[in-house]
């Protein structure tokens, strides 16, 4: 059983290390709003992943945690892109989409509260697709001027687009008790580790630049 969850534990440890690194440098970079948001994002991500693993260890149903995961990820990353976008129109689009998505999902939960214990396909789609679009917009913006948080952005684009696909199929896989389904979740964990590495690279590049700057 331990081998099955090994990748999850590795992801958890990496996430913990990165969260600590971001927290250590928090004071140095706290003037950058996007940096602050990412630190909170990592902290929330770590808490949710920790609870998920603990409940999985005690064989408790932890599927409802996925809703928190998608919501917090959507809200914090939307705020992140809102702070990174310089264009006023793009900023407004992020705010409007944030409001619309929260409204739609809120109404959906009010009407059908029973979906709380299942994978919510609409939620997965609405909470991931806008973020993928934002990351592409951010890439486009970086064509003409120096883009910030490019490593993290690349991670968001690759991880979110592939993990969304996995989560959308997640509902379908729930019914199967075959080993290959576990492999799919392993693939998801590997992609997540890749994503964490991109967040780490972002921190490292910032930290390195800052050190060079201090030396000069």
């Amino acid at each position: 059983m331990n081998t099955v969850y090994l990748d999850e534990y590795i992801a958890l440890v990496i996430l913990l290390i990165i969260t600590i690194l971001y927290s250590i440098s928090y004071n140095r970079f706290k003037s950058i709003v996007a940096y602050r948001i990412i630190t909170y994002y990592l902290l929330c991500g770590f808490i949710i992943l920790l609870i998920t693993n603990i409940s999985a260890y005690f064989k408790l149903n932890n599927l409802y945690l996925s809703h928190f995961y998608f919501w917090f990820q959507f809200i914090l990353l939307s705020l992140f892109y809102k702070s990174v976008f310089i264009n006023k129109l793009q900023n407004q689009i992020v705010s409007i989409v944030l409001f619309v998505v929260i409204t739609i999902l809120g109404v959906q939960y009010l009407i059908k509260p029973e979906i709380f214990v299942k994978f919510n396909l609409l939620e997965i789609f609405l909470c991931s697709f806008p973020l993928i679009v934002y990351s592409i917009i951010h890439l486009c913006n970086s064509l003409t001027r120096k883009g910030s948080f490019m490593y993290l952005n690349a991670g968001v684009l690759i991880y979110l687009s592939s993990s969304t696909l996995i989560f959308i199929f997640g509902n379908y896989f729930m019914g199967f008790k075959i080993p290959i389904v576990k492999d799919i979740w392993t693939v998801n964990s590997i992609l997540y580790i890749g994503y964490l590495i991109s967040i780490f690279t972002e921190w490292y590049k910032k930290f390195e630049r800052d050190i060079i700057y201090l030396k000069e």
Partner: peptide, 22 residues
């Protein structure tokens, strides 16, 4: 389900490849 799973795996590889190229 194995067939779907392998399709998904290929889909994933494809997606990672496309986003990385982008």
């Amino acid at each position: 389900p194995e067939q779907i799973t392998s399709t998904l795996v290929y889909g994933l590889i494809f997606l990672v490849f496309v986003t990385s190229s982008l």
